[in-house]
């Protein structure tokens, strides 16, 4: 069984799913691919929207999520972040 994901890893996974989906994904497939409960997923999405890691785009039919520059920056820096946290025992 996989180790329980931490907050930083969950954020990375959500952003990575969006990125791998040509930076445009609907709510339901993102929820499914994020492997989280609906409640936790909503909390994370709210946090990511609030921190401007992602933005919501709406057209007549659907609502999509895509990454912002800050979101891409998180993906780039993720390895540094995890190495830093792990090595300094934070």
């Amino acid at each position: 069984m996989d180790k329980k994901r931490g907050r930083l890893e969950i954020i990375y996974d959500i952003l990575n799913v969006i990125n791998k989906n040509q930076n445009r994904i609907k709510y339901t497939p993102l929820l499914r691919k994020s492997n989280l409960s609906t409640k936790r997923f909503s909390e994370y999405v709210s946090e990511l929207l609030e921190k401007e890691f992602i933005k919501a785009l709406e057209n007549k039919k659907d609502k999509y999520f895509c990454l912002t520059d800050k979101g891409f920056h998180y993906l780039e820096k993720y390895k540094n972040i995890t190495t830093f946290v792990e090595d300094f025992g934070l």
């Binding site: 921190k51 800050k70 920056h73 998180y74 820096k77 540094n80 972040i81 946290v85 300094f88």
Partner: peptide
């Protein structure tokens, strides 16, 4: 920068 990106309390 790492803190601003993560708001990680350990950092």
């Amino acid at each position: 920068e790492l803190y601003n990106l993560t708001t990680h309390k350990g950092i």
